[in-house]
Simulated assay, not measured.
Amino acid sequence: MSQELAASLLNQTMWLAGQISGRMQEALDRLDLTGPLANVLWLLQPDADPLSLRAIAGLLHCDPSNVTLLSAKLEQRGLAERRPHPRDGRTRTLVLTEAGEEVRERLLTTVMRHSPLAGLTLEEQEQLHALLAKAIDNA
């Protein structure tokens, strides 16, 4: 890869990340969420197997005690509940409540609607997704 291409790719990536981050902050403010709480909401997919608190900590690259604190905040707001894992009762999971699913959907919808990625076609979004996944896997 040439130096010019590498610099341009990094510049574009940083610009895009800045745009998405700024628009995400607007959505977080409207929903009265912090970045860390939103990060947990992103991870809790309603139709997926529940994630253990330890798995969430691993995905967020943070200490499990941080996830315990974030879980408690989400529970206080009625957005999530800590429950035993359905197949291993010794493991605690975090599951979205109905209100949590609604807030997560509003967050995703708002960020995507106002994201620079919204101007891409579905096919282009899928191509970008595949390329970013490959870059992440190479890391």
Rank of each mutant, 00 (worst) to 15 (best):
S21C: 01
Q125Y: 00
I56H: 01
L9P: 00
T68I: 12
M1H: 09
L60K: 08
E26R: 08
L31A: 08
G100C: 10
A17I: 05
V103Y: 04
Q45G: 10
Q25N: 13
E81S: 09
D63M: 03
S21H: 02
G119A: 13
T34I: 11
A80D: 06
R23D: 04
A80H: 07
R106G: 02
R30A: 15
K134N: 07
T109F: 12
D29S: 14
A99K: 15
W15E: 14
R83K: 15
A80W: 02
V103A: 05
T110W: 05
A27F: 03
G100F: 08
M112C: 02
T34V: 12
A38R: 13
A118I: 00
Q125V: 02
A38Q: 09
W42S: 00
S21W: 01
Q45E: 15
R90N: 14
R83C: 06
L94I: 06
D29I: 12
G100D: 07
A17F: 04
Q25H: 14
L53H: 07
Q127G: 00
D47G: 02
M24E: 15
H61F: 10
W15T: 13
L120I: 05
R23E: 13
L74M: 08
L131C: 02
L16M: 10
R90D: 14
E105S: 13
S8G: 00
Q125E: 04
L9R: 11
W42M: 10
P116M: 07
R90F: 08
R77Y: 06
Q19V: 02
S115F: 04
